[in-house]
């Protein structure tokens, strides 16, 4: 319901400054430390007081239409039990919320979502970083590696899900045959853990190139002088990475952490939808898929609105947490 728009609006706002380089993110740029005369010389003056608002208006309109307005509607209908066609509706107070939070199934899905998000975020960041560091060594003068590693990103999530589904197909999947070679009877669609494994693999695979691009550009933005100075101080490449390179990559990593969390929570919808083939049955699903199932398949508008509000709160809390506790350790510049 409101989640897809909210996530896209969010990634839009996050991604826009990021395109210019990860440093300027979230307005923390320490430009104020520059000498005042220099900033004054470059400062743009608006002659009209309305002009800045006019520039903001298109973005605000999009956020209003695709995020605030649906959010308000979701909050409203989460307090009602409503006939789908809009004939009868009963005010039920917080009953939709208590029903959802008491449901063992919902809590199970929430648990899976937490594990899934953590694993997908961790592995896509870790593998993306590893590949970027390794590619950074050989990349100069050779665009082929870069292209090969990046082009997976051009695949739409449902297509990635479709490819994953074929790789893990019960009857013809090459990965199933590969697993059988090691004595692992991989049953995607039948066994909860096997399906979870397949979903995580496909979701991580899909996201690695994105992280790779950002990490690689982050690495290439580290001045050669810094690297050379580090090289003189420390012989261990591993320690140099931990003490010099990684801290300098921290702003990129923090930005990617937020983007990847959002990706795992929301954008994996397409992968999951294709992999469970329209029938979740006893397969793992994430919270946003549950919202879709109850709202669009089950036509339970009240219950699914309550679930979207819960998701909004989760994302809100998670983002505040990340900014307050993790961003403190990130040093820009």
């Amino acid at each position: 319901m409101t989640n897809t728009p909210s996530s896209s609006a969010m990634s839009a706002t996050l991604a826009a400054p990021a395109a210019g380089g990860p440093w300027g993110l979230f307005g923390r740029r320490k430009s104020a430390s520059k000498p005042p005369e220099e900033t004054d010389a470059k400062r743009v003056q608006f002659n009209s007081r309305l002009l800045p608002y006019l520039f903001l208006a298109p973005q605000m309109a999009i956020i209003f239409v695709f995020f605030y307005w649906p959010s308000v509607q979701a909050i409203h209908s989460s307090f009602y039990l409503e006939d789908p066609f809009g004939f009868g509706s009963t005010f039920v107070g917080l009953a939709n919320y208590t029903d959802v939070l008491k449901s063992g199934e919902y809590l199970g899905i929430a648990r899976f979502t937490a594990v899934f998000t953590a694993l997908v975020t961790f592995f896509s960041l870790a593998i993306g970083l590893l590949l970027a560091v390794k590619a950074d060594g050989v990349i100069r003068g050779n665009a082929t590696y870069k292209t090969l590693l990046i082009w997976v990103y051009a695949i739409a999530p449902p297509v990635a899900g479709l490819m994953g589904m074929m790789m893990f197909d019960q009857h013809i999947g090459p990965l199933v045959k590969f697993a059988a070679f090691f004595g692992w009877d991989l049953k995607v669609g039948l066994n909860y853990n096997d399906t979870a494994f397949a979903m995580i693999v496909v979701s991580v695979w899909k996201q690695i190139p994105y992280n790779f691009i950002f990490f690689l550009s982050g690495l290439q933005g580290i001045p050669v002088s810094v690297r050379e100075a580090a090289l003189m101080d420390c012989r261990s490449g591993f320690r140099r990475f931990w003490t010099v390179i990684l801290p300098l990559l921290a702003p990129t990593a923090f930005f990617l952490l937020i983007i990847n969390t959002t990706y795992a929570l929301f954008d994996t919808f397409g992968v999951i939808d294709v992999m469970v083939k329209d029938k979740a049955a006893n397969n793992p699903i994430t919270l946003v898929y549950k919202v879709y199932m109850d709202g669009f398949r089950g036509n339970d508008l009240g219950g699914s609105s309550a679930q979207s509000v819960i998701l909004m709160i989760i994302v809100f809390v998670l983002t505040i947490f990340q900014f307050r506790f993790i961003e403190r350790r990130v040093h820009y510049n």
């Binding site: 199934e105 909860y192 049955a281 109850d294 089950g298």
Partner: peptide
Amino acid sequence: GFYPQIREIMEREYGRIFAGE
């Protein structure tokens, strides 16, 4: 009513039966 969701519950539990859970 809400029968599509009831079917989803059945599908989930039937899957668990055959998975031996």
